[in-house]
Design a binder for these strands. Structure first.
Lengths: 130, 130
DNA sequence: ACCACTGTACTGCTGTGATGCTACAGTTGT
DNA sequence: ACAACTGTAGCATCACAGCAGTACAGTGGT
């Protein structure tokens, strides 16, 4: 598996792992029914405690993205809605990358770009929340 | 002042505050030399500890965006580079909002969009870091 | 000189992320 | 049946981030 954790980003390991698994599922790198590495295996690979991986897996199970079968392993369960989402996500991903590239050409820094996204999404969330 | 903190986002108050002040500076809402509200005043408005505001201010001072003068207050100091950045940021801001809107029309959720930005910017960061 | 304002510094509490360890329980292949 | 794998669960522990409260120190107007 090709996950990678970043200590300097300040984000919890288990959250990073969750994000990466979600992304892998949405982008099609992982398919419905695929088996994920075992908790201990992955923990050893990433040099973290098995507990940490277990937590990520179990939270993803609550979200319905994973099915954990004791004794056999962890398997991806991609819902109906998500099928067909893959292409859209891939297309969207390209657009996002393009925009970032464009803004970068214009002399904006990564963190400035990040801030723009953040505030833009904040606005939506606030409106949506009320 | 028009700052607003969000408890449900999981981001520290002081970071949120920093982001919003930076954004206000970059977007032109705050000008060079402008005085910011006092620590206690702002703290009371946002219903947080004065300490929290103090931390945000002091970190921004290290970044060089603020000048803190004990006894008189906090003042914005916008560097040369930043001048002229304003229009670009505003333009960029619009592009970002447009893209988010577009993706949303295509049926993507906020958190999925968020994830896309995150991974896209991560890639850049990783490349830049190595 | 004084007072009301500014930022500063310190101390302590609390929640949480992460780890290590241990023991348990279901599944699968031999 | 057994062995070797899977996930589950519960602890204790450590470190650190976020936040609050409180007392201190500089500044400026009167």
């Amino acid at each position: 598996m090709f996950f990678k954790l970043n200590t300097s980003i300040g984000q919890p390991f288990y959250v990073q792992l969750m994000q990466q698994i979600r992304h892998a599922a949405e982008s099609g790198a992982l398919q419905d029914g695929d088996q994920l590495p075992g908790i201990r295996t992955l923990a050893e690979e990433l040099v973290v405690s098995p507990n940490t991986v277990a937590r990520a897996y179990s939270e993803l199970e609550h979200e319905g993205l994973l099915e954990l079968r004791q004794g056999s392993g962890a398997f991806l369960t991609i819902k109906r809605r998500a099928r067909g989402l893959t292409e859209r996500v891939q297309a969207a991903s390209r657009k996002v990358e393009d925009l970032i590239e464009e803004l970068h050409q214009e002399g904006l820094q990564d963190n400035e770009i990040w801030r723009l996204f953040e505030t833009a999404l904040f606005h939506r969330a606030e409106i949506g929340a009320e």
